[in-house]
Amino acid sequence: MNIFRLTGDLSHLAAIIILLLKIWKTRSCAGISGKSQILFALVFTTRYLDLLTSFISLYNTSMKFIYIGCAYATVYMIYAKFKATYDGNHDTFRVEFLVVPIGGLAFLVNHDFSPLEILWTFSIYLESVAILPQLFMISKTGEAETITTHYLFFLGLYRALYLMNWIWRFYFEGFFDMIAIVAGVVQTILYCDFFYLYVTKVLKGKKLSLPA
């Protein structure tokens, strides 16, 4: 464990909690893409199946349960509890165009052709594009609530910190996982446009609105 991975995990946890609290406190999931949240629940489910097969540490196991629990709680709140506030008309990204090719890619490019490893690879590839429905929705509505931008900021920051974690681990441990690194770079690049808007607008107290 190193400082980049720890702050990365905490940033990821912060993002998940911010979103959960935003929906719970405001009793509304306006502006939130349910499709992205379903993809994140799928990412955690396919990645953390090793909860059943291997124990790494209490930290690792507990964080996995927290991530999975929060992800499904968020999906439940969007599609069941606060369904009336779900903005389905703007959440129209065709996720099947993501899931199917990524499923195929996971079969072709992986470290080991075993079920758990292919599911892990699928989850890594899927996570890199899982935010696209959310970013697409914001581009369609032309704006985002400030609390939602904070959610996206911490979510984007976590994988950027993981990139530094992988540099650290390569230098000090000789560890590197090309699949995770390439997907992590793609994932972080997808946030760059948002990061620019977040720094130039939200941090200056303005609302995040895109030129319609």
Binding site: S54, Y67, N165, R169, G174, F175, D177
Partner: peptide, 10 residues
């Protein structure tokens, strides 16, 4: 090269 344990990251 993959790290010591299969996937020790979240």
């Amino acid at each position: 090269m993959i790290g010591r344990t299969k996937h020790d990251e979240l």
